[in-house]
């Protein structure tokens, strides 16, 4: 009896605690999202009245080659960026943990700084680094690797991968921060056993730290996948979707459909498809990292 009462009281408090956040999220995120979904079944040019057209927009998304291919590009970009961001961020976090406090602070600052710099400057910089006669190609020829020189951002086959790598690099600071925060909350006592048994650092990482920070990894993986599907600024700043439309990703196509072609219904449909596609990948990622979570 008392147990139930306690549970009931907890639940009530819980709802109360969630209420303010829920209100803000519903009004400013969920309502616009639902509006988009509703619009995806209609036709609208931004000014006239809204007409219901059923699934015509979705059919057009899947039948227009130029639209469908942007989804494929978004997937490639997301996978590349996520891999780079996660691997690099985790690497940094684990390596940093070996160093002294002061050094850790310094390196944390350095590795997080790309995330804080506005896209305008980073875009300018990378355009000149990746230019056909830019820094990267110059470096390659210095190292005698001239055969590897490319027009990094102009080659349609290459540009997307390059963009993914740049995006991953920019976002790895966030992964690093979250992993570091997670690692810091692991108590000392855990390592004593391992040390007594003579395990080296990397074994400790593999057996103790990685499994224990798995929830954080799962979380960050989901967030990174999600945000790399939605990225617009980086692609736009570096290639504007070019050459031509070869690096047009789904978000850019959504903008084009809406603001250039005045087809907001199709844009909303593409947006909804993108959300479903991204959800699929996020859930897949979470499934890959499923398992027990530990308390310590």
């Amino acid at each position: 009896m008392k147990q139930k009462k306690v549970q009931g009281y907890q639940r009530l408090t819980g709802y109360l605690f969630m209420a303010p956040a829920a209100v803000m999220i519903i009004v400013f995120m969920i309502v616009p999202l639902l509006w988009n979904v509703a619009l995806s079944f209609c036709s609208w040019n931004g000014n006239s009245s809204v007409e219901f057209v059923g699934i015509t927009n979705y059919l057009s998304v899947f039948s227009e080659a130029t639209t469908l291919v942007t989804l494929k590009r978004s997937v490639i970009l997301a996978l590349t960026a996520t891999s780079v961001s996660m691997l690099l961020g985790m690497l940094y976090a684990f390596l940093l943990y070996r160093l002294r406090k002061k050094e850790q602070s310094f390196f944390r600052f350095v590795f997080f700084s790309p995330a804080m710099l506005p896209m305008t400057v980073t875009g300018l910089l990378f355009v000149f680094v990746l230019s056909s006669n830019g820094l990267l190609n110059a470096l390659l020829s210095l190292l005698g690797l001239e055969s590897l020189q490319h027009a990094w951002l102009a080659d349609p086959n290459l540009a997307l991968w390059v963009l993914g790598i740049v995006q991953g690099w920019k976002g790895c600071g966030v992964t690093m921060m979250l992993c570091t925060t997670a690692i810091l909350s692991l108590p000392d006592s855990l390592y004593e056993c391992a040390r007594l048994e003579g395990a080296n650092y990397w074994q400790q990482v593999r057996i103790i730290m990685l499994p224990l920070i798995k929830p954080t990894l799962k979380l960050q993986l989901s967030m990174t996948v999600m945000s790399s599907f939605k990225s617009y600024d980086i692609v736009y700043a570096m290639t504007k979707g070019g050459p031509g439309e070869f690096t047009y990703t789904a978000p850019m196509k959504i903008i084009q459909l809406g603001f250039t072609f005045n087809e907001y219904g199709t844009a909303a449909a593409l947006g909804t498809v993108l959300v479903l596609l991204a959800s699929f990948f996020v859930i897949a990622a979470r499934f890959a990292l499923r398992g027990e979570t530990y308390e310590y």
């Binding site: 939605k230 959300v275 991204a278 959800s279 996020v282």
Partner: peptide, 22 residues
């Protein structure tokens, strides 16, 4: 929690019109 992740996917630009209306 999973839903909270998923609702963020929609690019901001898709949201600006309804958001502005609100």
């Amino acid at each position: 929690l999973v839903l909270l992740i998923l609702i963020q996917v929609l690019p901001t630009e898709s949201l600006i019109i309804p958001e502005y209306m609100i």
